[in-house]
């Protein structure tokens, strides 16, 4: 149990300071570690948990659920403790970084390197998000109806301002009705 906590802390502290461009970029590594290395869950469960996690909160609430599942074998109380440990490990290091950089920001803001870093990091996060999208797609789009729903969601996101949570709830209802 202590060992699982240790794994969670070590993993999420590294992912925390690697999440350039938001939490989504660490999904491929998170999936690899949670499924293939530590065997905390199956690929299907990972993608299910990702789907659940985007309902509320900042990107990457899936880390909370990975912590939950990793410790679920020890009972519900320990599982929630694991979720807490994972969440803290994921959000604390990057938060401390914001405070430190915020303190020295003024002298640094006018530096032209700021734009260099921003322009350099954006394509890397795009590549990482692309890789993450492939992982999610492989375990969520298995049938024609799911492909259609995914496509509709993509179009709605790109061309309307509809809140994604409404889409998720609607899709849950529709697929429950038709695919049950």
């Amino acid at each position: 149990m202590i060992q699982t906590f240790g794994h969670l802390v070590a993993l999420f502290m590294i992912l925390s300071i690697s999440a350039f461009g938001g939490g989504k970029v660490v999904l491929p590594t998170l999936q690899h570690q949670a499924v293939d290395k530590f065997h905390w869950m199956t690929n299907q469960q990972f993608v299910d948990l990702f789907g659940i996690s985007i309902i509320d909160g900042p990107s990457m609430m899936v880390v909370t659920l990975v912590g939950l599942k990793a410790c679920l074998q020890y009972g519900y109380v320990i599982a929630i403790l694991g979720a807490l440990v994972a969440t803290i490990a994921m959000f604390l290091p990057s938060s401390i970084l914001v405070l430190i950089v915020g303190r020295y920001w003024d002298s640094w803001k006018t530096s032209p390197w700021h734009e260099s870093i921003q322009r350099a990091m954006m394509p890397i996060s795009t590549g990482l998000i692309l890789a993450a999208a492939f992982i999610i797609a492989r375990h969520s789009i298995h049938t024609i109806p799911t492909a259609i729903m995914g496509l509709i969601a993509l179009c709605l996101m790109l061309f309307t301002k509809l809140n994604p949570v409404i889409m998720i709830i609607a899709a849950a209802a529709i697929s429950w009705f038709f695919l049950r």
């Binding site: 322009r119 954006m122 795009t126 375990h139 995914g150």
Partner: peptide, 27 residues
């Protein structure tokens, strides 16, 4: 059945993020 819909939408959202991030980063 319910989660099949949820994850399909999640996939659509991820794909839209790829488009948005790509649009911002490719110059």
């Amino acid at each position: 059945a319910l989660l099949a819909g949820v994850t399909a939408v999640a996939c659509g959202l991820m794909a839209s993020m790829v488009f948005e991030a790509g649009q911002k980063s490719i110059r």
